[in-house]
Each structure stands twice: as C-alpha cells, then as structure tokens.
Design a protein around this nucleic acid. Structure first.
Length: 815
RNA sequence: GCGGAUGUGGUGGAAUUGGUAGACACGCUAGCCUUAGGAGCUAGUGCCGCAAGGCGUGAAGGUUCAAGUCCUUUCAUCCGCACCA
C-alpha cells in the first residue's frame, strides 16, 4: 500500500530531527568553502510572520540549501531587530516592559520559522535588545566618537507629535511620520533639538565610488547613488553692495553666470537679517515666519513661487552687474550654501520666479530652445563677453578659473546626503554611552563600563521635555564624570535602531564573543555576505551598513569594506486585486494557516518561488499553492511506485533517456539557482517530472537507472521542498541527509542527443521540421531539407537565391 | 518635472549572441479510472479558418534571409526621487 504525500506528517518529523542533529549548524571553522546567505532580519511584533516574510526568508533559505548541497559550509543565520517604537508604544499602552514582551514574542517566531522549514542556525541566534549585543552597538558609538565621527549639534529636526520624537529625513514620507501616515495623522513639524550625528558625509565619496562594482539589483544601486546625490560645481562669492558681507552661492552651471540677474537666499539663511533694509523689514519678517510654520508638504504642494525682496543688492563678480537679493522658500537652507544665483533664462524655477516678480531674464546659452523659452540645455555662450562662442563646459571651467584667480570662487562638490542623525528620545534603544559633566562637557564612558544597561521602569512614555523616559530613572541617571570625578548625568538619548541593523551581519559570525565585537579573522573568512536579500530599505539601511563596513575597514577590524557581495531586492506579495495585505483590511494570508490546511510548508515555499521572478511583485493566487502541491505529490507518487516496482534492470535505451532527462535538468537548475532564476529552476524540475512520467508509461523498474534518476530529481527539488526531499531521500535508501553534499554532477555526454531537430524556413517562414544526425555535414542537412516533401512543394518552379544554415538549428531558403 | 524600468494567450509567466514565440503552471475542454477525493491519469487549449493556410509579443515605421529581441517615433502602466541650484 502506497503512502500518500502527507506534509502534516513528514514536515514536523524532519524539523524535529534536523533540530536534534544540528543539520543546519554551521561550522565556522570548517575547511569547506563557506557560503553566507541571509535575508534582512525581522522585527518581532505580536502578529507573527506574514506572507512577505515567508517570501524573503525562503529566498535566502533556498540559496543556502543549494550551496550546502553543493558541498559548501553554508550558514543561514537568524536574529531579531528587537529595538524600536512598536514595542515601546505597546509598553506605554500596556505597562508591560518591552524586555518582557520580547521574551514572550520571540519564542513564537522560533516555532514559525521552523514550521517554514528554514535552515537557520539557531545556535548562533542574536537579538539586538540583549545587553550582550547592544554592548557592542554602544561600542561602535564610542569608536565613532574616538575617531571624531560622532558629534553633537543643534538642528532643526523633524518632530512627530504623536510619538514625541525626532524623525530622520527618511522617516518622513509625504510630509508625515512614516508610522503615522494615515489621512487623519498630522503633518510633521520642525523643532530645534540637540542631536548626535555620525559623519557619514565624510564617507560619501568612497561609498559612491564603490557602488558601481557591487553585484546588487540595479535599482538599489541607483537609489544609493541618488541618495548620496553628488554634484560637482563651484561656490561663487557675490559682494553685497555697500557692505563687507559676501554671499556665497553653489552652482553647477557657472557658465551661466552672466545670466544671473538676481540672488535668492533661503528664508533661514544667516545673512537675511543683516541684509534686509529697514523699509523691507516687516515684509521679510512676515515671510520668514510664514515659511517656518509651513510644512514640507505644503511647500511641495504649492505650485506658485513665493518670495520677498530684501532691498539689498549684490555685485555679480564676473560683470559687476548690480543685482537684487531676494528670499524665497524654494531655496533650501540645508543644501549647498542655502543661497543661489538665479539664472531665469536657463533654470525653470528661477524662470518661474522671475516671471512672477518681473525680474530681468538674460539669455547666455544658445541652444535648441526658442528665444523666449527657458532651457537648461547646454550650447554656445552668448552675451558673455570674452567667453562668447565657447561651449558651456569650457566656459564653465574658464569662468570658474577666472574667479578663482581673484579669490571669488572655488570648485566645490556637494552631496544631497546629510550626516546621520543617530540619537532618539526614546526608551527602547541602546543608551548612548556618554556622561554629561558641567565641567568637562560630554565625556565618553570608558569601554570597561559597557554595556550601559537600560534601566527597568514602570512608565515608558517620553518624559515630555523632549527627553526619553530614561530621564525619569534618577538613580541610573546620576553618575560621576569619568574625567574629573565630579557629578554628571547620563545621556538620555538612545541610538537609532538603524545602527543595530547596520552591523549585525558581522556579529552573526561571532555572536557570543564577550571580549571583542567579533574576531576579525573569523569575520574576514566569512564576510562579505555572499547573498543578501530583502524587499525594503533600498537606501537607508543598506547605505548605513556600508558606511559601518567602510568604517570598520578603516579602523582595521575587517579587510573588505563592503559587507554585502550580492544583494537581491526582491518583490513582495500583494492581495489578488493588487492591493497591499493589511491587518486592517483583514485580507492577510497567514503562512501557517496554509501549512496547517494540509498543503504544507514545502508547497507554500515552492509556490512562492515559482510564481514569478524574484524581483517581481506577485499577486496572491489561491490556486497557486494547490498547484505546487500537485507537482510535489506527483514526484512523491513516482517514488512510491518505484519502490513497489519489480527489481530488474532497465533497457539501455531507457537508461540513456533517463540520464538525458536528469542531466539536462541538473544543468538548468544549477545555473538558474546560481543566477537567482528560481521560477525557471522549478519549471525545469516540473518538466523533468513530466518527462519521467512518460518514461514510467514505457516501463518502471527498481533499476539502478531509475534509482539514480529519482535520487537526482529529489536532490534538485530539495532546496524548495526540503521535508519531502528528505523523506524520499531516505526512502531511496540513504541514511544521511539530502541537505548536504547531495547535488548531482552534470555528465556532459548526456546533454545532447544524437538526433538534432532542424527547422526549415522558406523566406523566413517556418515550413518544415527535419531530424538529422548530430554528425551530419551542412551539405547532408541541406540535401535532406530539400528532399522533404513539404519543402519540395515550396521550392517547385523556384530558384534558390540564397541559403542560410545555422548549424544544428535552422535552414532558410530564400527564393 | 527628473530618473529607472515594464508592456507577450483567459491568468502568472518562458524564450543564450537576432534563429521553431507562448516553456512551466493556473484556468478551461474532453476522455479514462476509482478506494467518489481538496482526487488521480491521458489528451487538447494564442487568434481566425472545416482545411490548406493566414494573422499574431502595447501602436506605427525601419534594418535583416530572419525581429519579442536591434534602431526611430509614439502610447500606456508601474516604481524611485522630488524646488538639491
């Protein structure tokens, strides 16, 4: 009696055995070649995993399993990104400490991860909220501080009223807090706050330079570059008329300097008050106020340019022209110098402004555009004195050079990226290891006093004065200054959780090290991460992780500055109608429910990997998992039938045919898994099973040929359906696991059959198909083609003008 | 607005350097079988046509013996950035 394919039985069984025998425990000191595959780690919430997690982790799991079967020492780590607002907000509401709720939530995730059949190494599990981990997050802050890369500054920061906390630029989406972006949620505002920063801008250039060489999804590389936003230009000084002050502007188009007919300062620019004439004071003050309360969203939504005249004039250094100075909020204080030279003939924004306020427009570049149009296109210079008739690029160089000579300009590179704001006024994060001393200022806590443990509290809400709940922990707060011994107070800011997640891949390699952040030799052996994937964080997380990598490299901790060798930005899963799954809509798909329905994790995994290329978003298809189940079931049944078949050898013909099926498939699946084409790898396995069924119809025997074929196909599907493959592998007579060193080798002699199919075209249209021997010469093939009756009827009464022969593929007769 | 993609059956998607368009799967149709199941097996399934044949990869041109693939123009959809000077 054959056993039916019943995942409910075999999946838990093998999960238990793998766990007990440590099948997926990576030996980090192994002499085998290493392979590190991982997905972005998870933030544990009360909701458990959803179908998006199932997608992400299955992708890296398949990769790890494939490599493990190929004979690599593969490591598929697991960890938890446990700090952050949701746990804290829950704590504020419920009074249950985040430490406590994490301790409850995480074990639930263990069960779910195991139920999905992911080959995680649980011995090396990490969690960012544990002191053994955040000790080193704090240490990174200390190292940054010691290297002059951490500093404190007052900045206008985005402030979310709902969370009472500062937001990073990337946490502001369409003018709203990323966690409160609903219709009813308020727009964020700016507030002046003292913040800690990491000087990531110091690494901007090297991060940018290194981007091209990365084996990453192109869109992510591009996003990284845009984020850094390098632009080459010049800073040019404009003397303020009747004053010692100079206004410095940044421009990438110094060639258009003769067309600069006014200057515009950001309303927040430091010189505004100084410049403004008495009779314009009221107007300017009013405008400044107005733009301060104006939210980012309003500023972006507003179509019209606004601004006011200061009453002051500046002198254009190239032609001594006297030009008015305006302020307008379309100039941003945070970029460049916060001031621009306006060239309305060649910049759309300046053009719009000039039109509205009747300012002069002088054209200095001759290009395709009509005379009254604004165009930023380059061309030959006009109205530019001695620079006339030069192409833009050359004029640009010459003008800057001329100004540099008289000390009125310098070449300058600007970045859109700002320094990384790393402090948060929150409880649930790693405390910043700084003591504030009245006498010594901010003093770094000595390393031997790390970690700074988060004190237990009853109330986790921010203190309300802009500081975190830690300000309430008075015993914890008061300490002696490590420098002078006088009274001091601990920093109450905690570190941005992006810091925790920017170095975890290194800690995976040495998770229990008490002495050091990690053993460099071991980390050098195991990093960069060979394969990394995720469906979020194309900019911030990846850029920060790269920054930390480059920093670690600079301070001699690691050899390779780039942490992720390959990065795949995978798609997500949406509802059937294309909308996002969400709890509030109640349209979510729970992976565990699918498993429990009886389809099993293997079918779910196979469907997710088969539905589309990994980069594409897929729409949840309720028929998909049953379809994958059917495929697995067919393979299962085939093996069961084999086990009951009579023991006899297969014919030579069939043995060869089985070899061909298997070798062709092995080659395809191996290449596809290497290149992350999982969907076509599965398709190839399906095709192979279909082909094996055709062979079965001819004859099925418990022969060595069949055994070999079934073992091979079992090994090939093992990365996708690990439980079923393991069960079949053992049924086929193995006592060791299929998940190590089982990948079939390609025997090249079986890749081609001795007969080739040649397509015959007449004038490029398909007319016939012929079978020829693989050894046939061109002449023989053409002869045979002409003899084909169908071809003959087309060639009758015609002369062949031209014959094209593509060996082994096609013959085209042109008549 | 700028940048990046992507347009292929009823559906998801396949197609080395230009060389049999639609692999594989879902769905559908028919037949078989049965322990009547969430079955299974076999065959069929781009469109028009009884057939021969013709037409087909968003649209229109072009290059070529041959175009989903290359070139030009154009339309549509999606994503990222968004007053970055």
């Amino acid at each position: 009696m054959q056993k039916r394919y019943n995942p409910k039985e075999i999946e838990p069984k093998w999960q238990e055995i793998w766990d007990q025998t440590g099948t997926y425990t990576a030996d980090l000191t192994s002499s085998k070649p290493k392979y590190l595959a991982m997905s972005m780690f998870n933030y544990p919430s009360g909701n458990g995993i959803h179908i998006g997690h199932a997608m992400n982790y299955t992708i890296s799991d398949v990769k790890a399993r494939f490599k493990r079967q190929q004979g690599y020492e593969a490591y598929h780590p697991v960890g938890w990104d446990a700090f952050g607002l949701p746990a804290e907000n829950f704590a504020i509401k419920s009074g249950v400490s985040p430490q406590e709720s994490m301790a409850k939530i995480i074990p639930g995730y263990h069960k779910q991860y195991k139920a999905m059949g992911w080959s995680n190494d649980w011995e090396k599990e990490i969690a960012t909220h544990l002191p053994e981990y955040y000790k080193w997050t704090q240490w990174i802050f200390s190292e940054m501080f010691r290297h002059g890369l951490a500093y404190q500054a007052s900045r206008m920061q985005w402030w979310c009223e709902k969370d009472n906390t500062v937001l990073a630029n990337e946490q502001v989406i369409d003018g709203k807090c990323w966690r409160h972006d609903g219709l009813d949620d308020p727009l964020v505002e700016k507030k002046e706050i003292k913040q800690w920063f990491f000087k990531i801008t110091e690494y901007a250039d090297e991060l940018l330079e290194a981007t091209d060489a990365l084996d990453w999804t192109d869109s992510v590389k591009l996003a990284q570059k845009n984020w850094i936003g390098k632009s080459k230009g010049a800073e040019i000084d404009f003397q303020v008329e009747g004053s010692e002050e100079k206004i410095t502007v940044f421009t990438t188009r110094a060639d258009t300097l003769f067309g600069a007919t006014f200057l515009v300062l950001a309303p927040e620019h430091v010189l505004v008050d100084k410049l403004t004439c008495a009779e314009h004071k009221n107007e300017v003050e009013a405008y400044k106020k107005e733009s301060q309360v104006k939210s980012e969203l309003e500023r972006q939504a507003q179509k019209d340019k606004t601004g006011v005249f200061t009453g002051a004039y500046a002198i254009n250094p190239i032609n001594k022209a006297r030009i008015p100075i305006w302020i307008a909020d379309y100039v941003l204080v945070g970029y460049g110098t916060g001031a621009i030279m306006a060239v309305p003939a060649h910049d759309e924004r300046d053009h719009e402004f000039a039109k509205k306020f009747n300012l002069p427009i002088v054209r200095v570049v001759k290009n395709q555009a009509a005379d009254d149009e604004c165009s930023h296109e380059e061309g030959l210079m006009i109205n530019s004195a001695e620079f006339n008739n030069l192409p833009s690029a050359e004029a640009r160089e010459n003008i800057v050079a001329a100004l540099v000579n008289i000390g009125m300009a310098s070449e300058k590179i600007n970045y859109r990226m700002n320094d990384w704001s790393v402090s948060r006024q929150r409880y649930w994060g790693a405390p910043i290891p700084i003591i504030h001393c009245k006498k010594c200022g901010p003093v770094l806590l000595p390393d031997d006093q790390l970690p700074v443990i988060i004190p237990e509290l009853d109330d986790f809400a921010p203190s309300g004065d802009g500081r975190s709940a830690l300000a309430r922990a008075t015993d914890w707060l008061k300490v002696d200054c490590p420098n002078c011994g006088g009274p001091g107070e601990r920093e109450t800011d905690t570190l941005d959780t992006y810091i925790c997640s920017s170095w975890y891949m290194f800690r995976y390699i040495d998770p229990r090290n008490q002495e050091k952040i990690f053993d460099s030799q071991l980390v050098n052996k195991w990093t960069p991460v060979d394969f990394y994937n995720g469906g979020d964080h194309a900019t911030a997380h990846l850029l920060y992780a790269r920054f930390i990598g480059h920093f670690f490299n600079k301070i001699g901790l690691i050899d390779n500055p780039e942490p992720f060798k390959q990065m795949l930005f995978n798609g997500k899963v949406t509802a059937a109608d294309g909308s996002m799954f969400s709890k509030s809509k109640g349209n979510g798909v729970d992976p565990l429910e699918i498993i429990d329905q009886g389809y099993g994790a293997d079918a779910l995994r196979t469907y997710l990997m088969f539905a589309a290329p990994l980069e594409l978003w897929i729409r949840w298809d309720p028929q998909g998992v049953p379809g994958a189940y059917r495929f697995l079931s067919r393979l299962w049944t085939l093996v069961q039938e084999y086990l009951e078949a009579p023991t006899t050898e297969s014919s030579q013909d069939q043995a060869t045919e089985l070899k061909r099926i298997i070798n062709k498939t092995t080659q395809k699946v191996t290449a596809d898994l290497e290149n992350n084409f999982y969907n076509t790898a599965i398709a190839a396995c399906m095709k192979a099973v279909n082909d094996l069924y055709k062979q079965k119809a001819k004859s099925l025997a418990k022969s060595s040929a069949w055994k070999e074929a079934l073992e091979a196909i079992t090994a090939l599907v093992a990365p996708f359906a690990p439980h079923m493959a393991e069960e079949l592998w053992h049924e086929l007579g193995h006592s060791t696991t299929v998940h190590k060193d089982s990948w079939p080798q390609v025997e090249k002699q079986y890749l081609h059959s001795d007969k080739l199919n040649i397509v015959i075209q007449i004038n490029g249209k398909l007319r016939a198909n012929i079978k020829v021997s693989s050894e046939a010469t061109e002449e023989e093939v053409l002869d045979q083609a002409k003899q084909d009756s169908k071809v003959g009827s087309y060639l009758k009464d015609k002369t062949i003008k031209k014959t094209i022969y593509v060996p082994g593929k096609i013959v085209n007769f042109v008549v």
